[in-house]
Design a protein around this nucleic acid. Structure first.
Lengths: 138, 138
DNA sequence: CCCTTATTGTGAATTACTCAGAATAGGTGG
DNA sequence: CCACCTATTCTGAGTAATTCACAATAAGGG
């Protein structure tokens, strides 16, 4: 897990000030993985009542750019955020109820990093699984 | 390739009427793979001047639901459409210029269809590669 | 050819997000 | 400890992509 001091240290190392808002957003994303900007705002307001959605958007975008958060964009859904970064894990989405689960890499470390035919130099391979979760399906 | 008669037959088999608009949209997506709704509209207007963006959205959504088109949603970009469906291929996006390339499955037929740990029944695995294309990078 | 109803067009609304500028508050140097 | 500088947040408005409601049009079966 990440402690508040942990987050503060990471913010410092990126030349960012340690603000109530950033800590509240980080804590909220930590306890609600895959939450939308709006859900993060609601959760963060439990400890910081005066917090605007716009600031949450700014904070989420900045922390994502720093690599402290990861942003996922499921189809037909607003963007979602999580604190689990840097481990090349993927996501499974239930097409019925929309639930999102983390999924570790399928084959070894980086299964799909070697596409068969492309002229591009690949940096990232994001895998999005879609299916039916145990609550919804047979 | 797909001929106009081909598309018409597919529309019929889905109990859809064969309209100028649908044929124009299908032709446009066929000749401009990975085009946005707006680009599709512009291209389709070459042969059907009176065509509204809203109708294109409706047609694209319906044809995607039928499986005649595939919709891809790159990060930081509007949705894009293609006529190549049902072959489990993936996409590589250049993070510099935004160019999109088709990529065949990496390992055999369905590399990532067997995630290591999940309670979901997986139906689809979409892989999104991000990198630098030969025009932009070293 | 006519009629029924799917489809399209018209115009406005919604969602998710971004931007400009003023107010606030970290954190550093005195 | 205090003041100041500037990053950060707030206020309020703006934008892009997409969807919706309802009227107008046109496919295609009878």
């Amino acid at each position: 897990m990440h402690t508040e001091a942990d987050w503060a240290a990471q913010l410092h190392s990126h030349d960012r000030r340690v603000t109530k808002q950033r800590l509240a957003v980080l804590a909220a994303v930590g306890q609600l993985p895959h939450a939308t900007a709006e859900a993060v705002t609601d959760a963060a307001r439990a400890t910081l009542q005066a917090l605007t959605l716009q600031s949450v958007y700014v904070v989420l975008a900045d922390l994502t750019a720093l690599g402290m958060l990861r942003r996922i964009e499921p189809p037909n859904s607003p963007a979602r955020y999580e604190t689990r970064t840097g481990d090349n894990h993927h996501h499974a989405i239930c097409t019925s109820c929309g639930k999102i689960e983390d999924v570790d890499c399928a084959v070894g470390h980086a299964p799909c990093l070697t596409p068969s035919s492309t002229t591009m130099t690949i940096k990232i391979a994001d895998v999005l699984y879609q299916g039916i979760c145990s609550d919804c399906g047979p």
